[in-house]
Simulated scan of single mutants.
Amino acid sequence: MNVLVELGFVVASLVLAIVLLALNLWRAILFLFPASVRVEPEAPADQMDLPVELETLATQLKVLGFVPLGSHEEKPRLQKATRSYDWAHPGERVFATLHLGQGDTPRLYLLTPVSPGGFVITAGYRRPALEVPGVYRSGSLEDASPERLLRAHLRRLEGFTPTGDFTWEGRVEAGRSWYQGLGRKEIRRQNLQGLLWTVMALAIVVSAFLGRRGP
């Protein structure tokens, strides 16, 4: 009977570990290797397949003077790619990016590359605030309209020098630079819990195979 109980414990532990790894291994990899995310162009402006859920926000961006650039995909290891739809306001030197969040919730954030090698990001959904004086400012204004979000973003740009090419190619390059540079701190903050759950899952596996051995 003791052997069956022990075997049941091992099996249950392994099942739990597999579930934890399936949910969190990709987050652990993202924590350890933020630059491993692939950012690739997907379709130019005239071929963008914009989801119905994003059409209202897209229309509001156009009214504000944004022009469509195209779409791009961001793919972490072990995960499906997330597709984003990009606009630019060359006069204000601001990128606008739409994508679908959890539950197909429409999401919008504004991004401006700044010198030297930094970014200002303002999201219309909850996003942790982070600032590196002189080079980086990230935050949010939840549920704000595109017009209000743009006003807030322009205020937050004060003291920074916008830089870069506000084209489709420029937007894709900005995404790559974010993952390879100043975005790493945000990524690690967002995925620390995934790393901890992964370590716990591996500890469960070790315990299941080694911890139950008797003298």
Rank of each mutant, 00 (worst) to 15 (best):
A201F: 00
W26P: 00
G134W: 07
S207E: 09
A123R: 03
L98E: 01
F31E: 00
F166V: 05
R188A: 08
A35M: 11
I29W: 05
W197M: 11
I204T: 01
L154Y: 01
V114C: 06
L20I: 05
E92A: 14
R176Y: 05
E186S: 14
H99N: 10
P133N: 08
M1G: 15
A144C: 11
N24I: 06
T97Y: 00
P162K: 05
L16K: 00
V94N: 01
R176V: 08
I204F: 02
P68H: 05
R176A: 10
K62W: 06
T97P: 02
L210N: 06
F95C: 10
R93S: 10
G214S: 13
V3T: 13
A22E: 10
L23T: 11
R156Y: 04
K62N: 09
F31A: 02
V199I: 13
L64E: 07
Y136S: 04
E53L: 00
L20H: 08
R155V: 09
L25T: 02
P116S: 06
A129W: 13
R171Y: 05
K75S: 12
A28Q: 08
L210E: 07
P146S: 11
A152F: 07
L57E: 07
R148I: 09
A123E: 02
Q180I: 09
G214E: 12
D86Q: 09
V10K: 11
Y136P: 01
V205S: 04
L78Q: 12
S145C: 07
M200F: 14
E74M: 11
N2S: 14
N24V: 03
T163W: 04
A88W: 00
V67K: 13
E73V: 15
T163D: 08
W87P: 03
R83E: 02
V132N: 07
R126C: 06
V52P: 05
Q60V: 08
